[in-house]
Design a binder for these strands. Sequence first.
DNA 1: ATTAAAATTGAACAGTTGTTTAAAAAGGTT
DNA 2: AACCTTTTTAAACAACTGTTCAATTTTAAT
Lengths: 203, 203
Amino acid sequence: MAGKKEQDASTEEKILAAARVVFTRKGFAATKVRDIAAEADINLSLVNYYFRSKEKLFEVVMAEAVQKLVFEISTFFNDEQLSIPEKITKAVNYYIDLLLENPDFPLFLVNEIITGDDMFTRFAQQNTLFQSHLIRQLFAMKEEGKLAVHPVHIMMNVIGLVVMPFLARPILERNDLVKDGEFVTLMNERRMLIPLWLKGMLG
Amino acid sequence: MAGKKEQDASTEEKILAAARVVFTRKGFAATKVRDIAAEADINLSLVNYYFRSKEKLFEVVMAEAVQKLVFEISTFFNDEQLSIPEKITKAVNYYIDLLLENPDFPLFLVNEIITGDDMFTRFAQQNTLFQSHLIRQLFAMKEEGKLAVHPVHIMMNVIGLVVMPFLARPILERNDLVKDGEFVTLMNERRMLIPLWLKGMLG
DNA sequence: ATTAAAATTGAACAGTTGTTTAAAAAGGTT
DNA sequence: AACCTTTTTAAACAACTGTTCAATTTTAAT
C-alpha cells in the first residue's frame, strides 16, 4: 500500500488528464466519476483503483492548479532583488501566459472557494503570496509616506486587473463586445497596460 | 395552473429565502432539495409543490441575483445625462453597497457561469451592460483620440476593481492580511479610490 | 355545518452516484 | 510451464436525490 509501482503510468495519467478537464469545466459537485471514466475512456472502477476516491482525485487536480497559480507567482513576489514595478511586471506576464493556456482556471478556483470545505484553505495556508517580500515593500513604502493607500488595495488591484477578464470572458464574447480571437489581443495589450496603470496607483 | 393564489405567501417565501441562502453558499449542484427544506424548516414536498422543480426554483433565485447585479446597474450606464466619471462613480457606489450586503453574490454568479447550461446565458442575453450608453461614450472618446485603449479594458477594470476584493475576501481574511471588520473599511475607501484610479486610466 | 379547494405530510418511487467485490485478463519472474 | 502480482472488467450494493402520490389537515366560502 505504501510504495507506488512504476512501469505503466499510462492509465493513471489518462485518468488524471480527464479529471483535469472535467473538474475544471464543471466543478467538483457537478462532476460524476462516470464522466471522468468516459472522458478517459477507461473502466469506471479504475478511478477508485488508482485514486482512492473522487475527493482524493480532486485534491490532486486542485493541488496542481494552486501550485501553478499561487506558488510559482510567489517566486517573483519574494525575489528581494526586484523592485515593486519589476515584480508586478513579471507577475502580470506570468499570469497572462498561464491563463491564456488555462482559461478555465479562475472559474475553477473561484468555484471551489465557494463549495470547498477545507480543501482550498489547506493550500492557501502555506501561501506565501500575502506574506511576501512585495507586501513588505509596500508596507515600507506606506510607512515612508510614499504610498497613499493600504497595500492590500494594490494587491487586490493586480490580481483583479489580471484575472477578471478571464472570468468575464464568456459574457464578453457572448455579447459580441469582443470578437473571436480579439480576446487574446486584448490580454496581450494588458501586459503593458496593467503595470502602467499600477504605476499610476502607486503615486 | 395559470393563476397564482394569494393569501398565504409565508411558506413560499420561506422556501425562497432558504433557497437564496443555500444556493448562494453552495451552488446549484452541491445544493440538495432537502437542504433547502431543512433551512426553510418545512416539509420536503412543499419545495416541489410551490416551485415545480429544483431547477425552476434556482432560476428564480438566479434571476433575482442577476436583476440586482446587472439590470439595476445598467440604469446608471444608460443615463445619457451622466458623464463617464459620474457613471463610474455611481456604479462603483451601487456595487459596493450591494456587495457589502450580499458578499456571496460574486462567488455565486461565477460559480454558475462555470456549471450553468444556458441559465446564465439567457439572462446575459438581455443584458444592457455591454451595449450601454457608457460603452458608446467610451467608443466615441476613442474615436476622438482622447482614449488610448480599447473601451473594453475600461469596462473590465471597473468591474474587476469592484468585484475582485469580494472574491478574494476569504483568502485575505484567512491570511490575516485583513483584520476583522477592516474589510468594510477598505471597501469604503475604494468608493473614492476606484473612480480616481479610473480617471488616471482614461487619460 | 357542509363542502370544496388548498396546503401539508409521510412514504415511496425510480434513477443516479460513489464505492466495493469477485472474477478474469495481462504481465512478469523463476 | 507454473506461480504470483498487477491490472482490468462487469456487476452489484447501499446510500442519496429529485420527484410524485395518496392521504390527511387546514382554510375559506356558502
